[in-house]
Nucleic acid binder design. Structure first.
Lengths: 246, 246
DNA sequence: AAGTGGTCTAGACCACCGA
DNA sequence: CGGTGGTCTAGACCACTTG
């Protein structure tokens, strides 16, 4: 832990600068798993900040799994960072890129319609509300990966009808640009067998195993904003998630 | 938000008392989704605590999804609490109980042996290390739900060999009693088809869909401590998870 | 301009742990 | 015992939102 510059308001809050510095030391191997990190008092002395500021940096790193603390002993570098950050809500596009696969979408259907009972229930809409329904075939490196249907309240996506949905278009990037962000999602996964349409679009035999994913996403204020039902080819897709706390 | 007693050191830290009070008001319906919660300054005034203390209560409730904040506007009650707390590592036993199903286990096999290559890789063990291998059939309300194999480093579970593994025995409760806690887990899910042994134990036809779950659990210090591979009957089990942050 | 959350300070006492 | 993290105080200035 060298005395690199950390002091001034160079745009970034102090605690974030400290956090990044510690993170860098772990990543670069300067500090090893099990090593003790300097105490809150030591950090605040060394970098001329208050103890609460150093504390905030350490606590965030603990929450993110880089460090762990033991009462009365100290703060230590965690042993193996479990797949950093994959606790977040991911989009198909990001997901594929992360795996080094080139994502692609083919729009099969795209309609503006009255929300049916299921959509109203999931998205908590009133009778008469309109929704956009997007049916897409998802490709990875040009091969069919998943058949996906997304339903969103129409007011979130005005103008989307004129948007090209093919190629590497990401619905999530589109929403991000418009300032619409997810905060939380509830997701279920089950195993089903391919039938009818599904096997044709995905290029598998009827009876092949599929992973059925259903996801309801919420905005920051807790309002539901997207319901997705997607069928993934089991031989090409494995879902993973990191869980915290015991 | 009434002026109930909150002041003194009645065992519980101040910020936890405040947190619980706010949580109770949300649960009881006194405060509704979208309602503004008193500001940090207002809370600190009203309850005679410092702003940082009130802030700590609010920030924890935000992290847990009960509240959300908007810069310059205030702190608000979130709209729908997404399955409270199900971000955690769950055991089969807890999971079933949560769903109102009576869990049961039948031990099929239980051996102490040399760790093979896969076990060493997953659990980061050296050559020559011993592991305990537990094979169990999991029942819910008396019906087969899953076929599960767990592998643990032998030094975590000394004495387990003499333990009855049937009935409602929970490996996790056993470990909890011995002070061994999980902090984090990495889990993957995929869809497969039942074959051989699996279909017999689970009571399904070969070719029936199964949900294959693999989980690697870590202790607080980041050391891996259990690897589980479980096959769930797709018609009786749906996996769900809540994700944070977009 | 007034109110909010975001950051930060310079102290304090406590419970817990190790030597 | 000294050092650690856990809690807490009473202030401060900032950026942001709203009227």
């Amino acid at each position: 832990m060298e005395q690199t510059a950390i002091r001034p308001q160079k745009g970034l809050p102090l605690y974030l600068q400290l956090k990044q510095m510690i993170q860098a030391q772990i990543a670069s191997g300067v500090m090893h798993p099990g090593d003790r990190v300097p105490s809150e008092r030591e950090l605040s002395d060394r970098f001329g900040m208050s103890r609460m500021t150093a504390r905030q940096a350490l606590l965030e790193l603990v929450r993110e799994g880089f460090l762990y603390r033991e009462q009365g002993r100290g703060t230590f570098v965690a042993h193996r960072k479990v797949n950093q950050g994959l606790l977040g809500v991911t989009s198909f596009t990001d997901d594929m890129r992360l795996r080094g696969v080139v994502p692609e979408s083919v729009a099969l259907d795209q309609v503006l319609e009255l929300a049916d009972a299921e959509a109203r229930e999931q998205l908590q809409l009133d009778i008469g509300a309109m929704v956009v329904r997007l049916k897409r075939l998802r490709l990875g490196d040009g091969r069919p990966m998943a058949l996906e249907e997304a339903i969103l309240p129409a007011h979130f996506v005005e103008g989307l009808e004129d948007h090209p949905l093919d190629k590497d278009f990401s619905l999530y990037a589109y929403l991000r640009e418009r300032g619409i962000l997810f905060q939380r999602a509830h997701q279920t996964l089950e195993a089903v067998l391919a039938e009818g349409d599904q096997s044709q679009f995905l290029g598998v035999l009827p009876g092949a195993p599929l992973l059925l994913l259903e996801r309801l996403s919420f905005r920051q204020d807790g309002q539901p904003m997207e319901f997705v039902r997607a069928y993934y080819r089991a031989d090409r897709f494995k879902f993973f998630v990191d869980l915290n706390q015991g």
